[in-house]
Design a protein around this nucleic acid. Sequence first.
DNA 1: ACCCTTATACTCGGCACCGGATATACGGGA
DNA 2: TCCCGTATATCCGGTGCCGAGTATAAGGGT
Lengths: 195, 195
Amino acid sequence: MTFKRTNPLALAVLALLTERPMHPYEMAQTMRERHQEEVVKLNYGSLYTVVESLHRHELITAAAVQKAGNRPERTVYAITGTGTAELHSWLRALIAEPAREYRRFEAGISMVGLLPPAEALDVVQRRSAAVGEQLTALAVLLEKLAGMGLPQLAWIELDYRLAMLRAEREWLAWFATATREGTVGGYPGWEDRHR
Amino acid sequence: MTFKRTNPLALAVLALLTERPMHPYEMAQTMRERHQEEVVKLNYGSLYTVVESLHRHELITAAAVQKAGNRPERTVYAITGTGTAELHSWLRALIAEPAREYRRFEAGISMVGLLPPAEALDVVQRRSAAVGEQLTALAVLLEKLAGMGLPQLAWIELDYRLAMLRAEREWLAWFATATREGTVGGYPGWEDRHR
DNA sequence: ACCCTTATACTCGGCACCGGATATACGGGA
DNA sequence: TCCCGTATATCCGGTGCCGAGTATAAGGGT
């Protein structure tokens, strides 16, 4: 049975192990410290499942089992050659091939016609405000990271997110105006349906 | 136990049932016809699970059980008052509150430094090309829909997607140039690590 | 010396989800 | 008339994921 690239947490684990061998809990700590959990969903339950799966597929090996005092055993894992190959191949695929992602907002906005125009305008504006806040928070964070001397490459995904958030805000602004002014295509019918 | 808003497929089911009562298979057909499955992930297995869950929570009721010849029984469901309320409330939440979504590309690009710059450039350009194709395909589709006389509100989510794809393409173009010219912050170290 | 909080490190049961299997009806070509 | 592919309609077994639970150790205040 070949390894299934489902949970990106497995990717993060492989990436961490390229630096040095670690035990699962340490991986989690490191991910926290580096704010990686903002990009890859971290969940203790899943972490151990994922590590076990990587181990079964021999992408990582149990390098050592430490035991300090009466504490639970800590299994330290290291990445294998196959593991490194898998990491790189997976990474290339993730970047090169855009994959259909079912985003919550797309689902929501596709059914916005079910709400009366006034309510729709309200919720869109609320989102717009929230996105605005995220944007300023992100700008502050980027400022801080740059100030700490971290290279841009270390937080490139935030740069990407910034661009996406800006685009979203602009679209939301357009939609809000078009709804307020009734210029969105199909507006008359929309209003009629809600009386 | 209160209903959990996990699977957006449940949202689509509620939305469909505002039009008329349907049995599960008919819901699936209708979603196909309207290209809703591009926005909400449709899966027969999940559909029946989701419908059952909605039924348990009394957001829909079994309006009738039809039986034609020797065919399997078809249970026709209708939306309830609570169901309609839930639909609207869920919809408002989806639109108004941006939710952290763990996007595959963000995970990938955050680790792009693990690939040698030349490979990184290659995969980013490949994605850029793919996004370009999606953009033209989408433009054609929008043209067609508008030509069919469908109001913009009926395909508003595609409009949103268009805006996001454009922004992504621009960002990818920037990153590709910055990588090619070595102007992305941290480039020297990146190159050094891969020799 | 004692207690309480926080950190360490993992375990486990439940459940949503998915893909493929199942079973019948129907239409059309040879 | 017989077969076979497609449409109709649902079911079900396996699995990955999640959140909450568990248990010990370390630290620090009084």
